[in-house]
């Protein structure tokens, strides 16, 4: 009798644990897909990347296709050399595409948005996105606005 209740108790315990694990894995968190898949590396040079961090997402049309894996200063051009890794299957970036750094919402994190260009030729691995736009620095715009308001 005691053996039965022990077995039941342990079984219950393990089942609860398993259910919790499944619930957490599937309903409460996202498995990190990008780790498994083949990633292609491209780069883009920006004049200003203020606030962009490594691991920030890269999006095309709002859909996450990869992430930022490296940010370095190019010593010769004084621009920020940003390395992006894109998921292989989603990788069709025309050579004349544009890379911009946008903010999620108003105060959110920065991410890289790629706007596809019109070329028929696509970037090869290790290629570089030539057209880039810098981060819009909110404080500068606010400063200008305040100045203009005061002027009037």
């Amino acid at each position: 009798m005691q053996q039965r209740s022990i077995e039941f108790g342990v079984g219950l315990f393990l089942i609860l644990g398993l259910l919790s694990l499944l619930f957490i894995a599937f309903d409460a968190s996202e498995l990190d897909y990008s780790e498994g898949q083949n990633m292609v590396q491209v780069s883009a040079d920006f004049d200003n990347i203020a606030g962009l961090r490594v691991r920030a997402p890269v999006r095309i049309a709002g859909v996450r296709v990869g992430e930022v894996t490296g940010i370095q200063l190019d010593q010769h051009s004084y621009r920020a050399h940003v390395v992006l890794k894109i998921i292989q299957q989603l990788y069709h970036i025309p050579v004349d595409s544009e890379a911009r750094i946008l903010t999620e919402g108003l105060l959110g994190a920065k991410y890289v948005s790629i706007i596809p260009g019109l070329s028929e030729r696509f970037l090869k691995a290790e290629g570089s996105i030539q057209r880039t736009a810098s981060v819009m620095v909110l404080e500068n715009l606010i400063g200008k606005l305040i100045f203009n308001m005061n002027k009037k």
Binding site: I24, D27, A28, S29, E30, L31, D32, E35
Partner: peptide, 15 residues
């Protein structure tokens, strides 16, 4: 509630 949670929690790291 659930979709924000799902989007921001990484199983491999956080959990």
């Amino acid at each position: 509630f659930w979709s924000n949670m799902k989007a921001s929690v990484l199983f491999n790291t956080d959990v």
